[in-house]
Design a protein around this nucleic acid. Structure first.
Lengths: 357, 357
DNA sequence: TTGAAAGCGGTACCAT
DNA sequence: ATGGTACCGCTTTCAA
């Protein structure tokens, strides 16, 4: 397909970027035909299509410009994924990460692209990336402002690990999961139970709760897990006072160690430590080892999430599998299949490993 | 700003999406002024700008449509990040993950967006997402086809953990890192050294190498690490035969366990196990425990990468910190600052922890 | 299968 | 600060 230019140089490397129209001219066909070759194979003969695709590639044209096509069609094939907090933090969190894996799997399968968005909207910094995606997946308790903003685009939205009446959602049964693991870990009324909770109150310091805190509304997920723990404890005739509950502001190993250290040095020492994430449970195991507390003989530790690392620790962690990857898949499917009103609740599964008596 | 419609209903929720032109009409200003309000604050009075932003928001207009703006300006403020293998796999890999964290950090800071791309281009499935980004960051040894494809867009490209003469790159000194850790772990000529290598040859099964394999070219990164190991071993008068090296096709815990099990059951048993990733080293520690081999007393294990989990294992892993997050930051900065020709090589750092004698 | 043409929603230049 | 306008690249309808 290379042709001699008038100056005799073989035209190997065109530097100029061609557009569809120019490609059509070069190939001696109409723009409609070139467009169809890329978008609607049924509108032309297989042979012509083949030729067009091939020669276009040789001209350095690899398909319609996404911006132009999006503008014209009103569809970008891009899905926006908005994560709670900063992108950087979310990427480091194993649970968010598994969710992204599930989403990515389905999007790739369906030929969609994934645009990562942060829910942190800087004051006055509208950057308008929200206008590109055909739909959104929001993870976690996105602040009302960002949520409204996304909603106002009028595009389909699926929420994960949170619930709003306006949109479809994918959740797990946090309360039931927490109930079952607590029921499993707490043997009888003689247990001393402590809880290492995640995002229970609104402060960014690690601290114990007070009875007053328990009356406050907190983030749904944590609230549900806490309720599940308490229900199980009551059923075993155990009471867990607020002073035996710790608040950890983010799911971070170091903060969790601080809380675990406090919780394991009170007197009398807990016999059961219910942790609201595996990251926290892993930290608790490390602290227990540091303090020469044998797990599980002297202390049962439970996690939540079932991240890969929880199966690899010593001892491995008894936890609640929340199927994060599957949640991602479901969210993506709901979105792509236009199920804009469903509220899915996935089952949790109790995963028994070595960290409990 | 709400107005009464002729039917007397307060016009709170317009359902119709407005565009910039309509907003301009509603506000009684020109399109240029609205556009300037969003893009060039210096072109109008602060007061007018304030008013426009506010009233536009009330009309449900949150800024220029990204597709249209991109089409017109030729810039999207979107950066494409292309990962080796499937997106799903890459997201699960802690090193890729840290890289993404670093990239995300800088992009958010600079008001850019991140589009995740997979290097797996399905046969004939050009979908043109490549036309959107203003530039690309490629991670790992992307296949030549995808690489050429991206290069042909003519947009700036930064490669991480790989090197091509056509583009800027960010790498670490793999050979030196490997050399130093091997030098640290191998005490004298009496050591029996085994290597659990990553992507050393071209097969997707775990297997031992043969002498013939060593003559083959393999992926640069692995090759460099292997060379570093060998250099250190020679310096201690140790020879590492090909039969003491294992190939692991991907950085996966289960595959690594298989290899570790083979390596630790040969006779005589190795005294030093050099692992080309922390995931592999962590697997080796588990296998050693299973086989009742004491680490580090009977067996020194080294890792590579310094992922967070390596500091948390028991014993924690002596490894090479490759600053993955920083690599991500540097790559993003290089790209955004238009340094299209630099080849950065970051320092590695030997991180001594408990897994070596 | 084709040619022609109307926008999709903005930006930026120009003259005013 | 404004109105007017050409144009960014593509899709799709229409008539041929």
């Amino acid at each position: 397909m290379q042709q001699l230019e008038s100056n005799g140089v073989v035209q190997v490397s065109r530097t100029k970027k061609l557009n569809l129209k120019q490609v059509a001219e070069e190939l001696g066909v109409s723009t409609a035909t070139v467009s169809n070759a890329f978008n609607r194979p049924d509108q032309l003969s297989a042979k012509l299509r083949e030729r067009i695709l091939l020669e276009a590639a040789e001209l350095g044209y690899h398909g319609p410009n996404l911006a132009a096509r999006t503008l014209r069609r009103g569809e970008s094939d891009v899905i926006g994924v908005m994560l709670l907090d900063s992108l950087t933090y979310s990427l480091s969190d194993p649970v968010a990460n598994q969710l992204l894996q599930g989403i990515a799997e389905v999007l790739v399968e369906r030929n969609k692209h994934m645009l990562l968005l942060s829910s942190r909207i800087e004051a006055g910094q509208q950057r308008g990336a929200e206008s590109l995606p055909d739909g959104f997946i929001l993870y976690g308790a996105i602040d009302q402002h960002s949520f409204d903003f996304i909603l106002k685009t009028g595009k389909p939205v699926i929420v994960v690990d949170s619930e709003y009446k306006e949109t479809a959602s994918v959740n797990i049964d946090n309360q039931n999961g927490a109930f079952r693991i607590a029921e499993y870990a707490i043997h009888d009324e003689n247990e001393k139970v402590a809880i290492l909770g995640l995002r229970l109150i609104n402060t960014d310091r690690v601290c114990r709760l007070t009875e007053a805190d328990l009356a406050q509304e907190s983030q749904e997920v944590s609230q549900a897990r806490l309720a599940g723990y308490q229900m199980a404890a009551e059923q075993k005739n155990c009471h867990i006072p607020a002073a035996s509950m710790w608040h950890i502001p983010i799911n971070d190993a170091e903060l969790a160690e601080i809380a675990a250290r406090e919780a394991l040095t009170v007197n009398p020492r807990p016999t059961v430590l219910l942790c609201m994430s595996d990251i926290i449970a892993l930290a608790a195991i490390r602290v227990a080892r540091e303090l020469n507390i044998r797990v599980p003989e002297e202390l049962s530790i439970t996690g939540f999430d079932d991240i890969p690392e929880s199966a690899r620790s010593e001892p491995p962690i008894t936890t609640v599998c929340q199927q994060s990857i599957e949640k991602g898949r479901m969210a993506a499917r709901l979105l792509l299949d236009g199920k804009a009103k469903e509220h899915l609740v996935l089952e949790t599964r109790l995963v028994v490993r070595g960290s409990c008596r």
